[in-house]
Amino acid sequence: MARLPSALELKGRMLSATRIRVLDADPDAVAQQLQELNRQMPQAIKGMVAVLESEVALDLPRLLAQLRAAGIQPLAVTDGVLAASAVLAGLAVLPKDNRSRAEPLAPPAPAPVAAPRRATRVVSEPVRSGQQVYVEDGDLVVLSAVSPGAEVIADGCVHVYGPLRGRALAGARGDDSARVFARRFEAELVAIAGVYTVAEQIKSAKKGEATQVFLQHGKLVIEPLI
């Protein structure tokens, strides 16, 4: 049998991971919050890749067990109090983020490499009352109607080509450049990066018109699409 030229192939891959900072090491408080998160956004929690960070010493094996039970996949810790026990637990230890690196003296020229492509999800069936669609780290495109009582959520933008009558939340993990676009805007609630408004407060947009919603100086702007 012919042998392959090499046993391993190395490829670079961008991976999006959620940083989890432990503020309170009390296992009960952690358990309670995990339960809450699991109730609020079960799809986001399931399979979430996480890097742990803590200033306080804690029982790492116990925390890992709690996170894994909730469906989170801890991958690594940042260097610090957790480093020693992380090595024992088989986790990677990543260097601490250097804050000053985030603001370099001279802005570097934009890298010629393309940014990692974010996944877009296209939903062609109607999103009915009681249903929730969440797109992690990408855009959501709904071709049909979003009914009252339904929720469409994306970490990126939300586009709705049928009537939008339910709730639309864009930039669910804080991206304030995300927008909501709807061909027939009759939303119950819209939110961008956590800034929200409800139907009763929406006056600027004419009901049923093509509309976009975005953040400007921290405020929601709802304006017709031309």
């Binding site: 069936e125 999103v127 009915r128 009352s129 009681g130 249903q131 009914s147 009252p148 009582g149 339904a150």
Partner: peptide
């Protein structure tokens, strides 16, 4: 609205 909910469950 209730019918809409049921339609979601059906599918």
């Amino acid at each position: 609205r209730d019918s809409d909910r049921v339609l979601g469950l059906l599918q």
